[in-house]
């Protein structure tokens, strides 16, 4: 029965994404009508003439890659969030809270600022550097929060705030050191998909796929681990190793996506919760559905970011925070009540 529900929601989400992608292709300041978008899509596919170059370029080279990046980043963050929440048994865990995003952003920025000399540019350099940074951020938060099983919400949050503030400060100073890049600070701290090189996504996609595949393969263990580390061990899970593998796999997706988009909070928090409400907590279903729902969520967050204010973009992190922070407050309140 759970399986049927999963397929149902998978279908609903898949369809919503398909429709949303089409709608998103229509959104943008260049003001293309639906017919123009179709003509442009058709134009590149068939090589048919008579379509203005700029329309094809806007649809295929600007909007489509951006839609793709939104789906990819959203999926990565949501999958990572679901895995973190499961393995840490903490409904408030997400890449942002756990310092993964900040660590990854810092490493990515450092890589871009100093990478020229070290020859770290390229499709793989920045995502992998971000991965290392994300793991470092995560390690710091978990260390500070005291890894002792079943870390309490409050401890984790405090540790997260401390590490994030610190990394954010380093990031700001680093970016101010080269004053020309001042506007870029905002992009990294609040996240943005504007003017990102789609080539970066080429490095992120494999990271996401590897991460998702591993996590889905370990979904049963994840389910059992939500009972607590000891209980999971009693049920035959090699907790010590498995836990770290899950954390690392989740961080791979989360960090790599940060390399494209900067720090976008709350996606990894909100999406798995909603998916759990809709389709249940079984990670075999939760992880793939979170990927779909995360992509959908971020796609619309990005649409809002670019369409909310005519002629200007707001950082996508501001949009997700605007929706996610109240949700977080609600979760915090609820977890406080049951304690």
């Amino acid at each position: 029965m759970a399986g049927k529900r999963a397929w149902l929601w998978g279908g609903v989400l898949g369809l919503s994404i398909a429709v949303s992608v089409l709608i998103s292709l229509r959104i943008g300041p260049a003001g293309l009508e639906t017919a123009d978008v179709w003509r442009a899509v058709w134009g590149r596919l068939t090589g048919a003439g008579g379509v203005p170059d700029w329309e094809v370029a806007v649809v295929w080279d600007l909007r489509l890659p951006r839609v793709g990046m939104a789906l990819l980043v959203g999926a990565s963050l949501a999958v990572a969030g679901a895995a973190y929440q499961g393995v840490l048994r903490n409904p408030l865990a997400d890449p942002f809270i756990l310092g993964v995003s900040s660590g990854a952003a810092l490493a990515a920025v450092a890589g871009m600022l100093f990478g020229g000399r070290a020859g770290l540019y390229g499709v793989w350099g920045i995502p992998l550097l971000a991965f290392a940074g994300g793991l470092a951020g995560l390690a710091a938060v978990l260390r500070l929060g005291g890894m002792a099983g079943g870390m309490r919400n409050e401890t984790l949050l405090l540790a997260g705030v401390v590490v994030q503030s610190f990394l954010g400060a380093v990031l700001t100073v680093l970016m101010l050191a080269s004053a020309e890049r001042l506007p870029g600070v905002m992009m990294w701290l609040m996240g943005s998909l504007a003017n990102r090189d789609p080539a970066l996504a080429a490095g992120v996609l494999p990271c996401f796929l590897v991460s998702l595949a591993l996590l889905v393969a370990w979904a049963r263990e994840l389910n059992v681990m939500t009972l607590g580390e000891d209980q999971a061990a009693y049920l035959g899970v090699d907790v010590g190793k498995r836990k770290w593998k899950i954390l690392v796999a989740a961080s791979l997706a989360a960090s790599a996506s940060v390399a494209v988009s900067g720090i976008i909070g709350f996606v990894g928090l909100v999406v798995p919760h909603i998916v759990r409400l809709l389709a249940g907590p079984d990670h075999r279903i939760l992880l793939p559905l979170s990927a779909l729902a995360g992509g959908l969520f971020l796609l619309w967050a990005d649409n809002a970011a670019r369409a909310a204010v005519p002629g200007q973009e707001i950082p996508i992190g501001a949009v997700t925070a605007f929706l996610g922070a109240p949700f977080f407050a609600y979760l915090l309140r609820r977890s406080g009540r049951t304690r």
Binding site: R89, P91, R276, G280
Partner: peptide, 20 residues
């Protein structure tokens, strides 16, 4: 205290006993 903070069903929770 061997419970998950997530809304697993009774059936699914007992099925976890089959994990090994």
């Amino acid at each position: 205290e061997a419970f998950t903070p997530f809304p697993f069903s009774v059936y699914d929770t007992v099925m976890m006993g089959r994990h090994p």
